[in-house]
């Protein structure tokens, strides 16, 4: 696939000490098979992929871990603390992830509710402070609440990642106003994480001016994940360009596009 032209005035996405050309971060979960995942990653143009930390299955020890399919030289691995329900548990997972030896990045999740998978923001902020003090570059998954986002930034997070809608819901961007507000008020990158369902969701999300999007299910559970990965790449790029280009004002009345003068009698 030919590389997409980077928008003329666009800067790279800088998170902590790393700069990325792609503003799309993709997951590695729930793909029908590893070959599809690898092809989807390539089609997405992503430079960062998320991974989870779990016990090795000792009775199926020949089963390959995800690193047999992802080249850590080619992709920046972003380990998550998915499935953690307390700050201490998330801190434990983050330390294990760092010990794997790839980088200091951690996608910090502290889940507060099993039905909605919404974050426990109190524990999230507490865990973020501990991990930042330990030298982690924390990218914090949070809700679309400005106050929490500000606290995460003050805690030293490298990026704040508010949700578009609940994890795996595919409901799209439910609160564009809140996302714009967070973006306007924070200095660190704002990367929308979770809830994007299809390409138009990604495009609208990027049009809010956020720095990037992280998604997994929208690609992995598409009928054709590789096609959807490509669509997401184009949508993120289109949304970014539209944001940089600056949209026309919304008007409650029609304004003709063709001259009103010069009409025939």
């Amino acid at each position: 696939m030919a590389p997409t032209r980077v928008a003329a005035k666009d800067a790279p996405l800088v998170v902590g000490d790393r700069a990325f050309r792609s503003r799309l971060i993709v997951g590695t979960g729930k793909y029908p098979d590893n070959a599809t995942m690898v092809a989807a990653h390539a089609a997405s143009g992503a430079e960062v992929v998320t991974v989870a930390v779990r016990r090795v299955d000792l009775d199926r020890s020949k089963e390959e871990g995800i690193l047999h399919h992802i080249d850590p030289e080619k992709y920046c691995l972003l380990a998550n603390t998915a499935g953690c329900y307390t700050g201490d548990e998330a801190i434990r997972y983050a330390r294990l992830a760092r010990e794997a030896g790839f980088n200091e990045f951690i996608k910090l999740e502290v889940i507060g509710d099993r039905e909605t998978l919404l974050p426990d923001v109190e524990e999230l902020v507490r865990a973020a402070k501990v991990l930042v003090a330990e030298g982690f570059q924390v990218m914090a998954y949070t809700n679309e609440d400005l106050i929490t986002a500000l606290k995460l930034e003050a805690a030293g997070c490298a990026a704040v990642m508010p949700l578009a809608s609940p994890i795996g819901s595919g409901l799209g961007l439910l609160n564009p106003f809140a996302i714009r507000t967070i973006k306007r008020r924070l200095s660190v990158p704002v990367i929308v994480d979770a809830g994007v369902g299809t390409a138009s969701d990604a495009c609208v999300t990027m049009e809010q001016g956020v720095d990037g999007i992280l998604m997994n299910t929208a690609i992995a559970e598409a009928r054709q994940p590789v096609e959807m990965a490509h669509a997401m790449r184009l949508a993120v790029d289109a949304g970014r360009r539209a944001y940089l280009a600056g949209r026309m004002p919304r008007r409650e009345v029609a304004v003709p596009s063709s001259p009103t003068a010069g009409m025939l009698d």
Partner: peptide, 10 residues
């Protein structure tokens, strides 16, 4: 003892 590795995730 806990033995962990990276698996697919979002």
């Amino acid at each position: 003892v806990e033995l962990v590795h990276f698996v697919g995730g979002g």
